[in-house]
Structures are given as structure tokens and as C-alpha cells.
Amino acid sequence: MTAKTVTIESKDYVFNTLKEAQRYYNAIVKELYDAKLTLTSGQDFEDLKWIYSSYCNYTNHNLDKLGDSDIVGFKGISTVQQKGGQYIPTECGAVIFSDGTEEEFFTDKAIKEIASQQNPR
């Protein structure tokens, strides 16, 4: 099985593997969470915006929200995920929309979907 590359079109960069891309963007989300910062501009903001929008377009997720509101920021949040019957606290991203609403955003899941779309079998 060959490794799936991931192309982040917002910065015209190709990660050699899915895991490499996931680690890179997880580190950004973790830094936002640890520093309690909101990312509202710059290359990382553009990358996360592209990743979220691409994921939504590929999966038909939240398309009505994307049409009505602009993405104005990203931040790190703590949430609870169910894994193997247990509830595990985990850090993830949150998308902030221009209308003030927020939504959880798991970069791992989004990047995995993007890699699958970019590397069909």
C-alpha cells in the first residue's frame, strides 16, 4: 500500500504522507489551545480555512453554513470523543463564523478525507 500524499492548495505544498500533514496541523491546533489564541489571519489561517472548506465540499457537511457565513477564525478547544465505548477528553479545533457561531473541527478527519479524494484507488 502506497502512502497517500496530501496537497494543501492554499499554500501550494505537498505533504509526502497523510500522517505528516496531520501532525503539522495538529501542532497548530495544539498551540492555539495551549496559548488560548484565536487565529484570524496568515498562512496557517488560510490553510485551515481551505482544509475545512474542502472537507465540507467533499462530504456535503455544513454547506448551508459556509454559504451564509464567512470563516473568521480558528481556535483550539477541549471536547469529549467516544472511542471504544469510553469518553476521552481531546483537543480539537473550532471554526469561528462571522455570525459568532462556532463548530468543532477535527483536522485529522478532514485531512484524511482530503487525502482520499486526492488519491482515489
Rank of each mutant, 00 (worst) to 15 (best):
residue 35 A to V: 03
residue 75 K to T: 12
residue 80 V to M: 12
residue 102 E to I: 04
residue 19 K to Y: 12
residue 37 L to S: 11
residue 43 Q to E: 08
residue 69 S to C: 14
residue 81 Q to T: 12
residue 4 K to M: 15
residue 89 P to H: 06
residue 8 I to A: 07
residue 10 S to Y: 02
residue 65 K to R: 15
residue 64 D to G: 11
residue 22 Q to D: 11
residue 78 S to I: 06
residue 90 T to Y: 03
residue 23 R to V: 07
residue 59 T to A: 10
residue 110 A to R: 01
residue 4 K to C: 11
residue 7 T to Q: 13
residue 100 G to S: 09
residue 106 F to S: 06
residue 105 F to P: 00
residue 19 K to N: 08
residue 17 T to V: 02
residue 33 Y to I: 02
residue 12 D to E: 12
residue 72 V to A: 03
residue 95 V to P: 00
residue 60 N to K: 08
residue 49 K to V: 00
residue 85 G to D: 05
residue 29 V to R: 02
residue 14 V to L: 12
residue 15 F to M: 13
residue 6 V to M: 10
residue 7 T to L: 12
residue 1 M to V: 09
residue 70 D to C: 06
residue 1 M to Y: 08
residue 100 G to H: 06
residue 103 E to H: 06
residue 103 E to G: 04
residue 45 F to G: 00
residue 75 K to R: 15
residue 60 N to Q: 14
residue 32 L to W: 04
residue 23 R to S: 06
residue 42 G to T: 05
residue 48 L to D: 02
residue 15 F to Y: 15
residue 106 F to Y: 10
residue 67 G to Q: 15
residue 82 Q to V: 15
residue 90 T to L: 05
residue 108 D to E: 10
residue 64 D to Y: 08
residue 3 A to I: 11
residue 32 L to M: 05
residue 90 T to P: 02
residue 2 T to F: 10
residue 70 D to P: 09
residue 20 E to P: 08
residue 89 P to S: 14
residue 31 E to K: 12
residue 9 E to K: 10
residue 12 D to H: 09
residue 5 T to L: 13
residue 17 T to Q: 06
residue 63 L to W: 11
residue 99 D to Y: 03
residue 12 D to W: 09
residue 41 S to F: 08
residue 67 G to R: 13
residue 91 E to C: 07
residue 58 Y to E: 15
residue 65 K to S: 00
residue 54 S to M: 07
residue 77 I to V: 15
residue 48 L to C: 05
residue 97 F to K: 04
residue 106 F to G: 02
residue 18 L to F: 06
residue 119 N to R: 08
residue 40 T to I: 09
residue 60 N to S: 15
residue 49 K to G: 04
residue 36 K to C: 00
residue 88 I to R: 09
residue 80 V to G: 06
residue 22 Q to T: 08
residue 14 V to N: 13
residue 118 Q to I: 11
residue 25 Y to K: 03
residue 87 Y to M: 12
residue 113 E to D: 11
residue 22 Q to L: 04
residue 37 L to H: 13
residue 56 C to D: 07
residue 22 Q to G: 02
residue 98 S to M: 02
residue 59 T to E: 12
residue 40 T to E: 07
residue 18 L to Q: 09
residue 115 A to L: 05
residue 14 V to T: 15
residue 26 N to K: 12
residue 104 E to R: 14
residue 63 L to E: 11
residue 34 D to S: 11
residue 51 I to G: 03
residue 119 N to G: 10
residue 56 C to F: 00
residue 74 F to C: 03
residue 18 L to I: 09
residue 43 Q to C: 05
residue 31 E to S: 14
residue 2 T to K: 13
residue 107 T to P: 13
residue 96 I to W: 01
residue 2 T to L: 10
